[in-house]
């Protein structure tokens, strides 16, 4: 039913609490789930509730997931400086890093990985999609990897957005499109 590439994905998403890191991770996990694959999602958990760093690991595979904790991601989505510093060198060779260049100052000199810089936070603000930089980055990930078909994206969003907030599906779709066209 889906044409996305059936590759093993070991993904880290990282940023500040409140940027929607866990939500974006959940969305990726649902891409895998609805694609009929094995998936896991694991948040970092700590004492801080807001403003601290937040990250999560997402695994998508055709085999049962061993470690849900990703330490050498083949995909990194990163939305703040401390997380960039922490994870950029952990990306596996041939991996992909998608960086919110509105917030992250660093630029990697690694030539064994692909780094994509997207000014996602600025794009979100300019397009009345404040707080959806995370989804713009997911859109860019889809463009880079084909991780989800258009049909799957909407399905996954409808699955994780509560029906009481249904109108958010369209905003998210718009953010995905922005990312895909970036």
């Amino acid at each position: 039913m889906n044409n996305e590439k059936r590759e093993n994905r070991e993904i880290i998403l990282a940023g500040f609490g409140g940027q929607g890191i866990l939500f974006a991770g959940k969305l990726l996990a649902y891409f895998g789930l609805l694609g009929g694959r094995e998936v896991s999602w694991l948040p970092s958990y700590g004492p801080e509730m807001r403003g601290g760093t937040a990250n999560c690991s997402v695994c998508i595979s055709d085999k049962p997931i061993g470690s849900p904790l990703v330490t050498e991601p083949n995909i990194l989505i990163v939305m703040n400086n401390p997380s960039y510093d922490k994870f950029i060198n952990a990306v596996a060779p041939d991996g992909l890093a998608i960086v919110d260049s509105s917030l992250v100052e660093g630029r990697s000199d690694r030539n064994d990985i692909s780094c994509v810089y997207v000014p996602a936070t600025e794009m979100a603000n300019e397009n009345d999609l404040r707080g959806m930089a995370n989804i713009i980055l997911v859109g860019r990930l889809i463009k880079e990897t084909g991780i989800a078909s258009a049909e799957l994206i909407r399905k996954a969003l409808e699955k994780i957005i509560p029906s009481s907030k249904k109108q958010l599906v369209e905003f998210n779709m718009k953010a995905i499109q922005l990312g895909m066209n970036s």
Binding site: K26, W41, P68
Partner: peptide
């Protein structure tokens, strides 16, 4: 353990 408690899986 905390890993099993916190992680999501199908």
């Amino acid at each position: 353990d905390g890993l099993l408690g916190q992680m999501m899986e199908p």
